[in-house]
């Protein structure tokens, strides 16, 4: 409880921003009470308001699942597509219109299972977008099936005796991809950290992968319970170039200074299972961004026709 109280206090401090944030909400989210998606939506609204993003120049793209309903609740353009395929759509949008701000919301099944191929390659393309992977360790919308991130032994409708495999770690996987440029982890029960992480993700020019740990009140309500009850089981990664929320110092005693430029340390930390780690694992703003390296000069229609006519000369009889 103490952790929640402190986080809420932190939100209160920004209440003015919260008011404007509501302008970015199109309609109330239709998730279950207590769903972690609400926390993500609140943080997103605050971020949009803080950045004063133009609603018509902002696109939220999603796949299928509880968290993929996200775009319906945001007062911007939205693309609620098909299961696992949000990233190719978002890549296409970014290639076509680099000036648009693109956000992607995906669940753990969406991103790390059916969409796993796209996740790996979108990481490598490094198109400039904020990618929120809302990870509740379960398939919620289809009612309680094991996902790749379900903890080993955790029972579901498809694994009644408990998940048979060790959970897939999305951070390890993302950090293993060439050209990965931003990898962070945060949690729905630490809203201040969630917001600060989103802000950093937005500021990063490139593919900002944020794993948001969250509870599904129906099927994985207890999955992070011990971390919520005992903040000492969580270690915050802090650095002047990373995410560091001063107000969290009191609650989270375990703090590790980690330079997010250091990929080897980032990978080593992602591999360790002794503690839950929140913070920025890796960030490199200098890596090539796909829509920038693929940018080509605009050609007028008249010039195109002239060039194509010239092209025909190659084939002329």
């Amino acid at each position: 409880m103490s952790s929640l109280a402190i986080s809420l206090l932190d939100l209160e401090a920004d209440s003015q921003v919260c008011l404007e944030a509501d302008d970015y909400q199109k309609r109330p989210g239709k998730w279950c009470a207590g769903c972690g998606d609400f926390g993500a939506l609140n943080a997103v609204k605050r971020l949009l308001a803080k950045e004063q993003l133009q609603p018509e120049k902002t696109v939220f793209v999603s796949g299928i699942g509880c968290s993929s309903r996200f775009p319906h609740y945001v007062n911007t353009y939205g693309f609620h597509g098909i299961h696992g395929r949000a990233l190719p759509v978002a890549t296409g949008i970014k290639l076509a219109r680099p000036e648009l701000d693109v956000f992607v919301t995906m669940g753990d099944g969406d991103c790390t299972s059916i969409g796993a191929g796209h996740w790996i390659h979108a990481t490598r393309y490094n198109a400039d977008m904020v990618v929120l992977m809302l990870d509740n360790n379960i398939y919620g919308l289809t009612k309680n099936q094991t996902s790749p991130t379900t903890p080993q032994g955790y029972a579901s409708m498809t694994s009644p005796k408990g998940a048979v495999l060790p959970a897939l770690d999305p951070l390890q996987a993302t950090l293993g991809v060439s050209n990965a440029s931003f990898v962070a982890q945060t949690a729905d029960w630490v809203p201040a950290h969630l917001y600060a992480t989103m802000q950093a993700a937005y500021d990063h020019p490139g593919f900002s992968f944020v794993r948001i740990l969250q509870r599904c009140p129906k099927f994985t309500a207890d999955v992070f319970q011990k971390n919520i009850e005992n903040p000492d089981l969580t270690e915050l990664l802090v650095h002047e170039n990373g995410v560091d929320v001063p107000s969290l110092k009191q609650l989270f005693k375990a703090r590790r200074v980690h330079d997010p430029k250091n990929i080897d340390d980032a990978r080593a930390l992602a591999h360790r299972t002794d503690k839950l780690r929140l913070g920025m694992f890796f960030r490199d703003d200098s890596l090539p961004v796909y829509e920038e390296i693929r940018a080509v000069p605009k050609i007028s229609a008249e010039e195109k026709v002239a060039r194509l006519n010239k092209e025909f000369e190659r084939y002329a009889v």
């Binding site: 793209v61 693309f79 395929r85 190719p88 759509v89 296409g92 949008i93 076509a96 219109r97 390659h121």
Partner: peptide
């Protein structure tokens, strides 16, 4: 699949 997705995303935009 992604080829279709990228084309659709670009056309949408």
């Amino acid at each position: 699949i992604a080829a279709a997705g990228v084309a659709i995303g670009a056309s949408y935009a």
